[in-house]
């Protein structure tokens, strides 16, 4: 599993780590049943605080993308398939937004607003 973080970005580190997992679930490289690496190993390799990684895993668990299993650690849930199913829609929306010159942040805000309305 590939994890990349940019300490210079304004996005919190734990959110960047969670985003990496979401992105790979939607791309299909992470599937239901795949194990996430132990948080301690990730923290050591990325040179970040252990709690940052645990917070990312916690966030993913609250979303239902990851299940915490005793003895097996963090495991990707069946919810990954839902993210993968949305990938084409997301690509299409991003392409359309680029065509119209609408920025990513604006598109994200529109999606958020649409979710709140319905």
């Amino acid at each position: 599993m590939l994890l990349r973080i940019d300490p210079a970005s304004s996005q919190p580190l734990y959110d960047q780590i969670a985003d990496d997992v979401r992105r790979q679930a939607s791309a299909g490289t992470l599937r239901a049943g795949d194990r996430l690496p132990p948080a301690r190993e990730v923290a050591e390799a990325l040179d970040v605080n252990l709690h940052t990684v645990l917070k990312a895993y916690q966030l993913l668990r609250d979303e239902g993308l990851v299940e915490m299993r005793r003895g097996r650690g963090a495991v990707v849930s069946a919810h990954a398939a839902a993210l993968a199913a949305l990938r084409d829609d997301a690509l299409a929306l991003a392409a359309r937004a680029r065509e119209l010159g609408v920025g990513v942040e604006a598109v994200a805000a529109l999606v958020r607003a649409a979710a709140e309305e319905s």
Binding site: M1, L2, L3, R4, I5, D6, P7, A8, R35, P37, E41, V42, A45, L46, D47
Partner: peptide, 13 residues
């Protein structure tokens, strides 16, 4: 392609 300052790790088994 990595941004300057960006850290990346690949963990697998």
């Amino acid at each position: 392609a990595l941004q300057p300052g960006e850290r990346a790790v690949w963990l697998g088994r």
